[in-house]
């Protein structure tokens, strides 16, 4: 097996084309799958040495996060804490310190586990994914990308994410079996705009409810343009339980998850309120 460490995105794309190798981000999932021989790549293209992929920065319209930003880096970023707090929250509880130091947001999307911690917040925040391949660079809503099968065509590199600076308030909660090193059994990210006491443009994304994280259109519809109060919360709970019911059907985990999502939604909203300084 060949091992490459390109210094630039273009170099990486070229190597991918010529070697038919696969991209290695943090490696916390890929290395395991290689150990178990579930994946036996012809070549590995380690993206760790491409400086631009590590950047976390603010531009006029976006918070931009390079695909190789680790969960620790995001979790320590003041920018993300202030302007993408649901993502920041997800970074605090993902895996363990060691995993957070290694795992990247790009890898989280590339591996695309149903329980991927980073995806529901990015979805709720209306994130655009930036991809590049031999055919050039393109930008598309993450929600659309997650609707595609396969997720990425071979040789496509995830460059990073652009979070529009619209949703100043966002929250996240995750239900795991234990307090650390827990795979999400359910996760909920909520983002919204608050105009006085009225909420607009609500976006709710769920993780570990089905094959991939998804954004719920129906929740967005029902919960937008209302007073932000207790009855809004209760409406949200009953609606999200319906969403989980519909998404899980008769899967073994359904009876539990469709009830438990109430507590997760409540906590996600509570975290949003705290982040927004609404509970002081």
């Amino acid at each position: 097996m060949k091992y490459y460490q390109p210094q630039s995105v273009n170099e990486a794309i070229e190597i991918a084309y010529s070697s038919q190798g696969i991209f290695l981000a943090g490696g916390t999932d890929l290395v395991l799958q290689m150990q178990k021989r579930k994946i036996q790549p012809k070549a590995l293209i380690d993206l760790g040495r491409i400086p631009e992929l590590h950047e976390i920065k603010e531009t006029k319209e976006y918070i931009e996060i390079g695909s190789m930003a680790t969960f620790s880096e995001m979790g320590k970023s003041k920018l993300i804490a202030e302007k993408a707090s649901s993502l920041w929250l997800a970074c605090q509880t993902m895996g363990s310190p060691q995993i957070r130091n290694q795992a990247t947001i790009g890898g989280n999307l590339g591996n695309c586990s149903p329980a991927a911690d980073g995806l529901p917040p990015l979805l709720a925040l209306g994130t655009e994914a930036v991809l590049i391949s031999g055919e050039g660079e393109k930008q598309m809503p993450l929600a659309d990308l997650l609707g595609q099968t396969p997720l990425l065509s071979p040789g496509t590199l995830i460059v990073g994410f652009k979070i529009p600076k619209i949703h100043l308030l966002s929250g996240f909660a995750k239900l795991g079996r234990r307090e650390a090193l827990a795979i999400a059994r359910l996760s909920v990210a909520v983002a919204l705009e608050l105009d006085g006491s009225k909420v607009g443009n609500v976006r709710v994304a769920l993780g570990a409810v089905g094959r991939r994280a998804f954004l719920s259109d129906s929740l967005a519809h029902v919960l937008s343009q209302r007073e932000f109060n207790e009855s809004w919360l209760e409406l949200g709970i009953s609606q999200i339980q319906g969403v989980v019911r519909a998404a899980l059907g008769d899967r073994a985990s359904a009876p539990y998850k469709r009830v438990a999502v109430a507590g997760v939604f409540r906590e996600a909203v509570a975290s949003l309120r705290r982040q927004g300084g609404l509970d002081k």
């Binding site: 290395v31 395991l32 150990q35 380690d46 310190p97 060691q98 995993i99 130091n101 290694q102």
Partner: peptide, 29 residues
């Protein structure tokens, strides 16, 4: 455990703790 769960293989790599069972030799270059 060989899967990054137990932390017994923790080392400090460039100032950060990692599970050395999940890091490839090449990544340590």
């Amino acid at each position: 455990c060989g899967e990054g769960e137990c932390g017994a293989c923790t080392v400090i790599l460039d100032g950060k703790t990692v599970n050395s069972c999940l890091v490839l030799a090449g990544q340590a270059h």
